[in-house]
């Protein structure tokens, strides 16, 4: 059985916002990576930034241009 973890998923309105966010997160050392938008979440852009829910408590406010931040198990 695949072990699930709790993550914070940051969604974006458009790809350009996702790319800008990735660039800034990498530059500033904000943890996470781009993933395909989980099907459970609705958003404009098919890319989302994922970090662990635990880390999101510290870094949530530093992710730029995001539309929504959703905590979910995956």
């Amino acid at each position: 059985m695949i072990k699930k973890h709790l993550y914070c998923i940051f969604t974006f309105r458009k790809t350009t916002d996702a790319m800008a966010a990735e660039k800034l997160c990498i530059r500033e050392g904000i943890p996470g990576r781009l993933i395909p938008l989980p099907t459970e979440i609705s958003a404009g852009c098919g890319l989302a930034w994922r970090m662990s829910a635990e880390e999101s408590e510290k870094y949530r406010d530093f992710v730029p241009n995001y539309e929504r931040a959703v905590i979910m198990e995956m």
Binding site: T15, M19, E22, L34, P36, G46
Partner: peptide
């Protein structure tokens, strides 16, 4: 193809475009 996937070749294209 940029902005069509979250796998490396697609992301690499999207990064270049951005």
């Amino acid at each position: 193809n940029p902005s069509r996937g979250a796998y490396e070749p697609s992301l690499a294209a999207a990064r270049i475009v951005y």
